[in-house]
Amino acid sequence: MHDDPVVRIVAKVLIPSIMLFAFYVQFHGDFGPGGGFQAGVIFASAFILHAIIFGLNRTRHVWAFRPNLAVLCVGVLLYGGTGILGMLGGGNFLNYNVLGDTPQAGQHLGILLVELGVGMSVAASMVMLFFAFAGRATHNRFLSSKERNDE
């Protein structure tokens, strides 16, 4: 599909815009509709558009499996780490009040970190899900060719 100039140019314009919009939804979530989960899904949809137009192999070069896994794990750790940080400060798990000088500042920081962790994990898992589903045909062919070779 990448040999079609219209689709390619539109995608080149749209993919950065979608990523920027994902960051807007992520960091503007306190004031408007949005949050970590939605931002993660929007961010992943940019990679899905790239994979649809330029092919899965090129997208795997842009965004490889290992960094994706790292982002997924760092997101979960950020979420859990913020919770543990609240415990270290003397509160319950995910108690934001102890993170800053005032409870308001602590809540601001805590919600930002937790939403960032959620966004990272969700984006990485959505990209991983799409890769798993879209690459299934190749995988099945690989398995069947392996069976033929074994026979």
Binding site: H2, L56, A134, G135, A137, T138
Partner: peptide
């Protein structure tokens, strides 16, 4: 016929 592949045999 597929979502992700480009340039494969199919």
């Amino acid at each position: 016929g597929t979502l992700g592949e480009e340039g494969s045999a199919a």
